[in-house]
Design a protein around this nucleic acid. Structure first.
Lengths: 194, 194
DNA sequence: GGGCATCCGGACAATGCTGTCCGGTTGGTA
DNA sequence: TACCAACCGGACAGCATTGTCCGGATGCCC
């Protein structure tokens, strides 16, 4: 009697596992971007067209899911950093773009509520990317000598922390303005001090 | 049969209403400082030694309670701004101190999730305080000419947004570092550009 | 074709928070 | 003393979310 809805993707059986996993990750990327890192996981399951059971089987907790989703983001940063000729500015630009598209990544990485080793590891990868670009940026006069990679993670996290509270449409403009303030500083004297 | 605990403050009867209200505000100040603006209100009632019913009777919702608690903070800023000789730096210093003590105030004010008229009003009062101090600060070269009061609210909100995720002990140092970065900027060239 | 390991879905228990409700208490008043 | 308006406490309904559990479906392999 139970008619199978025509539109329902057949997602049963062993062979569907990988497909379901991919659907969950795609849905999670979408949901994290839309509703932030704290978004209910039940939403992810629904969006993926999959039961809660499957979600939690594939990804035991929020962090597992997020790590899988954002691995791509870290990898992008690392790849960019490894590209000859790429600068700290390039890396920061991409981080900001990622943050505008989805604050969840940097939010998760920058200030974990309770430090999870897996998150710390990702955070360190991001910090290493920034650190690797610092000497060249200092030499080019793009960054004050005393600014560290940790400072940059802090600043980027601070930016993400604010952007995550803003409706998406306002993020681009606000991020632009805040980066201007962060780069040049608000202090009039600093600009003259040299 | 119900023995009245000796330590229990008699908080019944019409005459106790004002006392209970004060206890609720004190507890709320404490709880907001400890657990942030999103802290469960049931905690506030418990800390105040008062039932949930009394809490919601005195303060129908979170915003009412928070406004009552933080009225003092806004008033302090306004009083400081009204003091002859006080500078923008003074105001920002006090805001930062307030933020370190309790991120709830600025968190509530800077980026309300859903704009409530009562919160907007407080936000505007803060913005006006900053705005009033801007001309003098510009003239003194303490602030870039294009920095607006809204910029400052944004920056202060961004700072609070990050600090609220940090354990209290780390806040002082982090706030100090971030203010240094915000004031002078991270950009090495900016310092030379003039 | 039959059996079975694998996987799925959604109901459900557990948890935590908000805001309401009402029986019961208090103390002022006549 | 007796009454009553004001007020209190905490139980509770409502709601949302997390993570588990298991009957049932699936399709691979023999």
């Amino acid at each position: 009697m139970a008619a199978m809805p025509a539109e329902r993707r057949p997602n049963r059986g062993p062979s569907a596992a990988a497909e379901n996993r991919a659907a969950l990750m795609a849905a999670a990327r979408e949901v994290f971007a839309t509703a932030g890192y704290e978004a209910p996981l039940s939403t992810v399951a629904r969006e993926a067209g999959v039961g809660q059971g499957s979600l939690y089987r594939h990804f035991p907790d929020r962090i597992s899911l997020a790590l899988a989703v954002f691995e791509e983001s870290v990898a992008e940063l690392e790849a960019l950093a490894a590209t000859p000729g790429s600068t700290l500015d390039d890396v920061l630009t991409v981080i900001t773009e990622q943050t505008i598209a989805s604050t969840a990544f940097i939010t998760m990485v920058s200030v974990p509520d309770r430090p999870d080793p897996r998150i710390i590891e990702v955070r360190d990868r991001v910090a290493r990317v920034l650190e690797g670009k610092l000497p060249q940026a200092r030499a080019a006069g793009r960054v004050r000598a005393d600014v560290t990679a940790d400072d940059l993670v802090l600043v980027v996290g601070m930016l993400a922390s604010l952007l995550s509270k803003l409706p998406a449409p306002e993020r681009v403009a606000t991020a632009g303005r805040l980066w201007d303030l962060l780069r040049r500083g608000i202090d009039g004297a600093a600009a003259r001090r040299g």
